[in-house]
Design a protein around this nucleic acid. Structure first.
Lengths: 349, 349
DNA sequence: CTGAAAGCGCTTACAG
DNA sequence: CTGAAAGCGCTTACAG
């Protein structure tokens, strides 16, 4: 006998139909062992018939947690509306997947670097923890991070892993990646390697890559030449183009370009083509990130792969541990050289 | 005088400190005009000091809405873990942005096409409405969509806009896009144009593109040749490669390939290169979507741009209207031809 | 303009 | 194994 419900069914409606108390309905639906199989079955059937779903707001309020995480993706206000670094997009994908595997929902939020971050998801009980993603001036954001830590916010940041950081960070081994790239370039006979990317403490990921680069040079008995480094603090194609123009205008000879990100490298490729320089014959070019486009540019880009799948899993795992009150530490992920044509090595596409 | 709070502050804590009732705190913080400026100010100051944030679970429970939307992104279980069509990723980006503009939070969820969808965000009050994204067999999902409609779920789907659809859909004008592509190819002198993509009602977006293609042919006095159409029901590079192999094995001559998506086109490009066929000299190739990689492949891909920014805004707007109880209708967005080198036109990169 | 009180729909001790 | 009851932290009529 179909009874028309006014609005959505509640556990009381089910209790009434099943002839039990509402407490029992709640127990049965949550899988409590304190309910007889018979009763549980009856309740489940009725719940299905009524298309009943437990009200998360009520449940969360009572249990004091939301079983959801919030992902804060910071974007540079200068980049236009349609551009998000594809690397972050794939991180987003892997984080989403890692969340479902853990049974958590994921709130995604884009934040403007310039504004006040809207980081109150945990305070408002919308999420149990946060994942922070995105390049920005570390020195500027540091006090914000410290504040989050002070407030007891559960969060993990994707980024450089530094000594004495207030927060928990997961990042790839940028110095190692930088070293691998430069070693490879040196092995190919390149000696005048330009570096495009900020080398200051404001952008620790870029500067760690630069540090690895310098280490490799020194290990080979070469001196890093400041004239070969040009600052680029954001991963956008335009900055890659401009950086190469700066480099050319300096008139210093170079036979390779190590761009701190693929997007910068792609810009560099374009600028070199415009300048009539052939890659990799005259100039080797390498990037960092291994974004999907990297293998399609011409010539295909040699780069460093960051394992986004593992990264997503680690990030989610670390927030979850914090939520459970377990001790957590920052961690570095391996970086792997992916050799394609742009560096001039013989390896296949 | 700093008082140590046990746990997070509630509106009662603020009321106590401000010497008013909790109701007044609630009113003041929600911006009610029923509170004197003086009182409001005092309350706001204390709230800030205590880092108070209203508990969304309590607030949502009471107000019976969550001010959040859920994005369900369907993925083919056959595609491997790391691959999400970049087109959907940029849709995700634009939807996220559109949500913040409207003051809504966004839950992102990846769904397996094969499994039961986990579409109960609205029933559980986690979200006020749903946005559905992702290609899949429309004939299979149709009954699910019907059920969602029957349950009064507020949702919008990105996809083909068809007569007699149970749901509200937003999609680009696929037939128009298909026509534009084929017209362009015909204008370039191509006569034997192969089409890669499913032409059945199972995949209405692809079949609408095919329909536009056929219309353009007929308008030019040409007969569509079934031997030039090969089914590919999913946007992945591998299927593009395989489709071209099928085409070649048929032994029918062709001078152009219209791939129903960029990912298919990229696969086609690779397969043609493997077969020693030059693009665009011997074969013109065009895609659909204008994903970021499209302009970087070699030769750069001529394609149809779908306006993801507008799409995201429309999608969000339409769910919001449903939530407000306003009447809504499906809508088609313009499709715009983007000419690059792969079709053989003279146009710039 | 302010306060006391009801109620949103659950979960979970407590008592049996 | 089951039920009655308290309580999670808000919002909002209702009364003043």
């Amino acid at each position: 006998m179909a009874t028309v419900m006014k609005g959505k069914a509640t556990s009381f409606d089910i209790a009434y139909k099943a002839g039990v108390s509402q407490s029992t309905v709640s127990r049965a639906l949550r899988g409590s062992s304190l309910v007889s199989d018979d009763t549980r079955h009856r309740i489940q059937t009725i719940a299905r018939e009524l298309n009943y779903k437990v009200d998360k707001n009520a449940s969360n309020l009572r249990r004091q947690h939301s079983v959801t995480l919030a992902l804060l993706l910071f974007e540079d206000p200068t980049t236009d509306d349609s551009l998000i670094n594809p690397f972050f997009l794939s991180m987003l994908g892997s984080i989403t997947r890692a969340c479902v595997r853990q049974g958590y929902d994921l709130l995604v939020s884009f934040q403007q670097l310039s504004n006040d971050w809207h980081a109150d998801y945990q305070d408002s009980h919308k999420a149990d923890g946060l994942i922070l993603l995105g390049y920005g001036d570390y020195l500027v954001s540091r006090s914000r991070l410290q504040k989050l830590v002070d407030q007891g916010t559960h969060f993990v940041r994707w980024g450089a892993v530094l000594e004495g950081q207030p927060d928990i960070s997961i990042g790839c081994d940028n110095a190692l990646g930088g070293r691998a790239i430069t070693d490879h370039l040196l092995a190919l006979g390149r000696r005048r390697i330009a570096f495009i990317g900020d080398s200051s403490a404001h952008f620790p990921e870029f500067s760690a890559r630069y540090r690895g680069h310098c280490e490799a040079l020194c290990a080979a008995g070469l001196e890093p030449d400041p004239a070969l480094q040009v600052d680029a603090s954001d991963s956008i194609e335009r900055l890659g183009i401009e950086s190469v123009q700066v480099l050319l205008s300096r008139g210093v000879p170079f036979d390779a370009i190590f761009a701190a990100s693929d997007l910068l490298a792609i810009g560099a490729l374009r600028a070199l083509a415009n300048a009539g320089l052939r890659v990799p014959e005259q100039v080797s070019v390498v990037g960092f990130d291994d974004i999907p486009t990297a293998s399609f540019v011409n010539p295909a880009l040699t780069t460093v792969m960051q394992d986004t799948k593992l990264a997503g899993e680690m990030l989610v795992d670390r927030v979850l541990r914090q939520i459970r009150g377990e001790p957590v530490e920052s961690a570095m992920l391996p970086a792997q050289l992916v050799i394609r044509r742009s560096c001039g090595a013989q390896a296949a596409p």
